[in-house]
Design a protein around this nucleic acid. Structure first.
Length: 339
DNA sequence: ATCCAGGCCATAA
DNA sequence: TTATGGCCTGGA
């Protein structure tokens, strides 16, 4: 096993991106050192995912049907729980899963550096959440998650996704005898009735979820095929699904298909962009989109996550006061006419 | 109580 | 093509 890990470390170090991961197996955990700028907290609590949960100083979740438990160590290092008696090949699978999901081999410090260079205003957001990485989510779970996110709140979204998993997903053995519930696949969900889904707290989006499940399950909608399309084509394709508009489509493309040029704009992003970049200028949503793509280019998605997370956690009061003061009135494409 | 929260859809001009 | 109202739900 030690040899296998050394080999892994070497491969990572010579893979062309100089990631230089060093992996070590220690009893029940796999320690991964030398990650290029990594914060488990910011990565899992910035809002891109919904189903990871914090347990003490660990985060637990399911990736590709496997239960994972992770902990951040000092510096850019994490530990991954592994069964003490796991054979080498299983440990290797877990390592591969974590590496891929968190994109551990990417030069994230370089991403942060480039963003700071192209935009001085984003500095504070990166200072606050340095190590925030975009993860590689399962496209199906990501799609349903963001359909449910429409006109909804995070605690309710989480509750709905967990209920769906508990009811329609498969149980997965986790650390220390714990049971995790995998998110149900399109086939499993397509066998549910709209009433079943509604009972999970999905609300008026229940029909959208069931439609999507059926379309994907019967092959009418090719989710994996999206990776072959251009960003615009893939977005148009996703938006043919009921319940999927521009914002939800961009979230799926960014979080599941690594289309880092995507820049999803929700109410928080609209507020923070107007506040930081267009303080007293009238701009439309489209103009904000265009501005972001031009300024951040192929790193727009990263910029979006830093700004979104920063806005919610650091600027909430400021933004509330600003909008309450009527700052947005008259600064949209169509001014509100009283009376 | 009324309002609103990580949008989208169906109408209407 | 762009502007409005309504929508499950539950917490303030």
């Amino acid at each position: 096993m030690q040899k296998e890990m050394e080999k892994t470390s070497q491969e990572a170090g010579t893979s062309g991106n100089m990631s230089g991961l060093a992996v070590e197996r220690k009893g029940c955990e796999l320690v991964i050192n030398g990650i290029s700028s990594f914060s488990l907290y910011h990565t899992l609590e910035c809002g891109q995912t919904f189903r990871w949960r914090r347990e003490g100083d660990c985060y637990e979740g399911i990736v590709r049907g496997r239960a994972l438990r992770l902990r951040q160590n000092r510096g850019d290092s994490i530990s991954v729980w592994i069964p003490a008696s796991a054979p080498d090949n299983e440990v290797y699978d877990i390592l591969s899963l974590v590496r891929e999901y968190f994109c551990l081999d990417s030069d994230h410090a370089g991403v942060e550096l480039r963003l700071r260079e192209v935009d001085p205003l984003i500095g504070p957001a990166i200072d606050y959440a340095s190590g925030l990485r975009l993860v590689k989510q399962d496209p199906w779970e990501c799609l349903i998650s963001f359909i449910i996110s429409a006109r909804n709140r995070i605690p309710l979204i989480i509750a709905a996704l967990n209920k769906l998993s508990r009811r329609f997903g498969r149980p997965v053995a986790g650390p220390e005898g714990a049971t995790f519930w995998a998110f149900p696949g399109p086939e499993e969900l397509s066998r549910a009735s709209e009433a079943d889904i509604h009972e999970c707290g999905v609300g008026f989006r229940s029909g959208y979820v069931l439609d999507a499940a059926r379309a994907v399950a019967n092959g009418e909608f090719d989710l994996n095929g999206l990776s072959l399309l251009s960003l615009d084509e893939a977005r148009q394709s996703l938006m043919q699904l009921r319940g999927v508009g521009r914002k939800v489509a961009d979230c799926v493309l960014l979080f599941a298909f690594q289309r880092y040029e995507a820049f999803p704009i929700d109410v928080w992003m609209e507020r923070v962009m107007r506040y930081l970049y267009f303080r007293n200028e009238p701009v439309t949503l489209d103009e904000i989109q265009t501005f972001a793509r031009r300024r951040f280019g192929d790193l727009a998605g990263f910029a979006q996550e830093y700004l979104y997370h920063y806005a919610r956690n650091c600027l909430a009061e400021e933004l509330r006061a600003w909008t309450a003061a009527g700052a947005l009135d008259g600064h949209r494409s169509t001014p509100v006419i009283p009376g």
